[in-house]
Design a protein around this nucleic acid. Structure first.
Length: 423
RNA sequence: GUGAUCGUAGCUCAAUUGGUUAGAGCGUCGGACUGUGGCUCCGAAGGCUGUGGGUUCAAGUCCCAUCGGUCACCCCA
């Protein structure tokens, strides 16, 4: 029996990995122009990092975490999301001493024990950013615009941006009481799941797919209508900034993100090209989180996007623009006697930054050409006993079949010229 | 965690009502008057039919279990 990847995981094979690297490269470029810097935190953290921050009522904490005990009896957890570790690090590394806001981005795998599905895996990759230290609505807008502009930059066109406000630490409890009261009164009309939600996680009542529940909830009070003056003013500002950049958005009062730490602005971008798992990126403000981790009262906001889902959407849109820089030069050994000299040339080319390769399969000359040709290599250098005697090689451009003889001591210069011109 | 559906070469798929040594295309490797590619032609390798049981004279085909894929619920990136 052969080994297989664990359930819900997959190998990112070269053809796919190249695309991922492209997506990541584009992200990093853009993040940089917005003033964000990279941060790399451990793949696992003390379990409490997540249980404290994400919220104990969420499924993530309740049943989806990869938690284990190490040999020192520490309870550790493979990170299920990226924000909590970054905030932990912000506090631990005293980043409040840096000029604020501190703007960070990260990329890497996250882990959740879920039933795999289209766009949902047990190990999945996220690219995320966090801006910590400012409550300026312009930062909210920056975060949203960065996400929108990134998706545009990789060629996505069909996107829907949803925004909402969760209110502050005062608004939310008040509202939840109001919501509970409303739902309690309509208890008999709700499905079993929703009855449970009333006590466990009332905000989730809006998510139910059941039609009668939806009808009931359509008339329920919305958090967005019960924000305090400061929060609704903040939200208005955010909207204003978005409008200034001509970004279309839809206010979705029932938009509740999965993590409990959100306050004020939340947002999500959905792609119609995807299946049930269509949220391709999302985030929000978390003004209490730094305090939660024992740091000074510090506001923050950020988002995360799913690399698999993004790649899926870009693929469906048919706009992957990966310029796969294939090997440029292939050294064809026409005669076994020339092998040593050929390898020597190979390293000479490589040390001059010419990407080059040679046959390692003892192929016939014809088979060498065949194989290299399929790899899309454009320039071939022929070397056999005839060339060895002449102190020159034959350089062939496979695009038009033209061949020229080049002196060995001029080869590097010649190829550098060809490769440079081709680019 | 719940439900549906599927599981045959590296990939995409075949295999009459259960019936002999499980086939094809693509890909891989090799060859086509031996120092020149893409096209074409020829050939080769490659499967204990996901795994384990059961029914039967006989199982890729039927039954059960298990593992995995896919899709949806749930949840979320």
């Amino acid at each position: 029996m052969q080994f297989r990847v664990p359930k819900g995981t997959t190998d990112i094979v070269p053809d796919v990995a190249v695309k991922w690297q492209y997506l990541e490269r584009k992200a990093v470029e853009l993040f940089k122009t917005y003033g964000y810097k990279p941060i790399i935190t451990p793949i696992f953290e003390h379990t409490e990092v997540f249980t404290r921050s994400i919220g104990s009522s969420t499924d993530i904490v309740q049943k989806e975490m990869y938690t284990f005990e190490d040999k020192g009896k520490r309870s550790l957890t493979l990170r299920p999301e990226g924000t909590a570790p970054v905030i932990r690090s912000y506090v631990e590394q005293n980043m409040n001493q840096l000029p604020q806001p501190v703007k960070l981005y990260y990329t890497g795998p996250m882990f959740r024990y879920e039933r795999p599905q289209a766009g949902r895996y047990r190990q999945f990759w996220q690219i995320g950013v966090e801006a910590i230290g400012s409550d300026d609505p312009a930062v909210d807008a920056e975060s949203i615009l960065l996400l929108v502009n990134y998706f545009k930059a990789v060629g996505l066109k069909e996107l829907t941006l949803y925004i909402n406000s969760m209110g502050c630490e005062n608004d939310r409890p008040q509202y939840i009481e109001m919501l509970k009261e409303y739902a309690e009164a309509k208890r008999e009309s709700l499905c079993n799941d929703c009855v449970k939600r009333v006590d466990l996680n009332p905000l989730r009542l809006f998510d139910c797919k059941n039609e009668t529940c939806q009808a009931v909830m359509a008339d329920a009070p919305k958090l967005i209508d019960h924000l305090c003056e400061s929060c609704s003013g903040h939200f208005d500002e955010v909207k204003h900034y978005l409008e200034m950049q001509c970004v279309n958005y839809t206010i979705k009062p029932e938009l509740v993100r999965g993590l409990d730490y959100y306050t004020k602005t939340t947002f999500e971008i959905v792609s119609p090209l995807l299946g049930a798992q269509n949220a391709i990126g999302g985030g929000g403000r978390y003004n209490k989180l730094v305090e939660e981790f024992g740091g000074p009262s510090t506001p923050g906001i950020g988002f995360a996007l799913g690399t698999e889902r993004l790649a899926l959407a870009v693929e469906k849109e048919g706009v992957f623009d990966v310029n796969e820089n294939s090997t440029e030069v292939f050294i064809a050994v026409a005669d076994p006697a020339a092998k040593h000299a050929a390898v020597n040339i190979l390293y000479q080319l490589r040390s001059n930054d010419i990407s080059s390769d040679i046959d390692y399969m003892n192929r016939s000359l014809k088979a060498q050409l065949n194989a290299a040709n399929r790899r899309g290599i454009r320039y071939f250098v022929f070397l056999g006993s005839r060339e060895l005697e002449a102190g020159a090689v034959v350089v062939k451009d496979m695009e038009d079949g033209a061949q020229v003889e080049v002196k060995l001591n001029e080869l590097v210069e010649h190829l550098t010229g060809l490769v440079g011109a081709a680019k």
